[in-house]
Amino acid sequence: MDDNLQRCCYDLEFTVASNLVAISSGTLLYQVLSKDDPSCKTFVYRLDVPVTAGWISLTIETRIKLAYALARQWFGVYITSETPNDDWLLDGLAGFLTDTFIKRFLGNNEARYRRYKIVDALYYNPSFTLSILQKLGVATEIFNLWFHMLQQTKKSGARANSKREHEKKVSYLGLTSLLSLPAQGATYCAWCF
């Protein structure tokens, strides 16, 4: 069903807090109120116009970008950077909240996969990957989140992230590949050297 020539009318499910209403294009088929604590409502819409699966994946990417923009705006109301060099704090907090959004609504596997793709690209072509991240304006956000995750520990003192040996190796290989870059080419990421 991932072919652009194959279209179908999808049923879309949105689960929200019981005091909210989910609005979508299409026709509302039904809504279900859960008895869980806290209670929530699930709205099911059917798209009236057949669309491709690519349209649905664009919706997910748009939600992630919107989550980042809203988080940055929300933190920006409460935190004002003294200089442009202090924007890393807003980027880091917004990135952390966006990663939390991805984990909660798309699952841990999707969040890990997205981080792994970036680390893998850094290892195989660090200068190109950094230039792309810089053009997208997410380099600082990604590195802040990465370093934050590497430092997180549980109450027991064990690492909270990168439990698997392979994740640790890939993460360290990605970071060490950055050391091969000339310092003047990485001025936007000078704090990580």
Rank of each mutant, 00 (worst) to 15 (best):
N85L: 13
T98Y: 01
A53L: 10
A94W: 00
Y68T: 03
G76W: 11
W55V: 14
I56C: 06
A71K: 07
N85A: 09
A71F: 13
Y78E: 09
T80E: 12
T80P: 01
D87I: 10
T100E: 06
E61C: 06
R104G: 04
S81N: 15
I64T: 02
G92K: 05
A69Y: 01
A94L: 01
E82G: 08
A69D: 12
N85R: 07
D86T: 01
G107N: 05
G76V: 12
L58P: 00
L70S: 15
F75N: 13
T100D: 02
D91C: 14
P50K: 12
V51D: 04
L90F: 04
V51W: 09
P50H: 15
N85G: 11
T98G: 00
L90N: 07
L70V: 08
R63T: 01
K65Y: 04
T83S: 12
K103V: 11
T100H: 07
A69T: 14
W88C: 06
P84G: 03
G107S: 07
L89A: 12
N108G: 01
T100R: 09
D86S: 15
T98V: 02
A53K: 12
T62L: 05
I60A: 13
G76D: 11
F75K: 14
N109G: 05
G54V: 01
E110A: 15
R72Y: 13
N108L: 11
A94T: 01
G107Y: 03
G54S: 13
F101N: 03
Y68L: 11
I60D: 08
Q73T: 05
T59G: 13
F105I: 03
T100L: 10
G95I: 00
G76A: 10
Q73D: 10
K65D: 00
A71G: 12
